[in-house]
Each structure stands twice: as structure tokens, then as C-alpha cells.
Amino acid sequence: MFFRKKPPETRTYDKETLRPVIRASICTGERAAGFQDIRTGKITEVMLLRTPADLEEFQRLYQIADGEITVRY
């Protein structure tokens, strides 16, 4: 029995209407990664960021470069 390795999972988002952001709380320090609608400004959170590895996982899943993510407080 040989098992095939699953290819790494990737997800997509509409780059014309959404921009990747990190929502950070000034009081608690909690951070969440997600996408902000360019027209309305509404942020949809995708995952909680507890470690730097979580941010790297978010960037890998959605194929986002380092300079593309902005932080919103």
C-alpha cells in the first residue's frame, strides 16, 4: 500500500474587490487575518493569528506576498 501525498492546499480570493488585511486589537493584542472589501470597507476574518507561523500559513494558502498585507487597528 502506497499513499500519495496530497498537494498543498491553496485558496483564491477576488483581488479586484478584496485586499488582505490583519485586524489587530490595541487592548488585547489579538490579531486576525482576513480580507477587506475595497468598496464598503467591511472586513471578513478568515483565521486567528496566534504565532508567526499562522501568518505564514495564511500567506501560503492565499498566495499573498509579504508587502501586500496591511494592518488595521
Rank of each mutant, 00 (worst) to 15 (best):
Y73T: 01
T40K: 06
I26K: 03
F2H: 13
T10G: 02
G34F: 01
P52M: 03
G29L: 04
F3T: 09
Q59D: 01
Y73I: 00
G41F: 05
E45A: 09
T12Q: 15
Y73G: 00
L61E: 11
Y62N: 08
T44E: 14
E30R: 13
T28P: 02
K15F: 01
K6L: 12
R72P: 00
R72A: 05
R4I: 01
D37L: 05
V21S: 10
E16T: 13
R60F: 03
Q63R: 10
E56R: 10
R60V: 02
R39E: 15
T40R: 04
L55A: 05
I43Y: 07
D54N: 09
D54V: 01
M1N: 09
P8V: 03
R23C: 08
R4D: 02
Y73V: 00
T51A: 07
D66N: 02
K15T: 14
E57Y: 10
R4M: 03
T51D: 14
R39G: 04
Q36Y: 01
T28N: 06
V71G: 00
G67K: 01
F3E: 10
T28W: 09
F2E: 08
G41I: 07
K15R: 15
D54K: 03
K6G: 00
T70V: 11
M1S: 14
T70P: 00
L48S: 07
A24H: 10
T70H: 05
L49H: 06
G29N: 07
A53C: 06
P20Y: 12
T70I: 11
A32W: 08
Y13V: 06
P7M: 12
M47D: 09
R60Q: 14
E57S: 06
L61G: 03
G41T: 08
I38L: 13
T28L: 12
T12D: 14
E30D: 14
R39I: 13
I69L: 05
P52A: 03
T44C: 03
E9W: 01
A33P: 11
Y13E: 10
E30A: 15
T40Y: 03
D14W: 01
E56S: 08
D66K: 00
R39A: 15
G29R: 07
T17C: 07
R31F: 00
M1C: 07
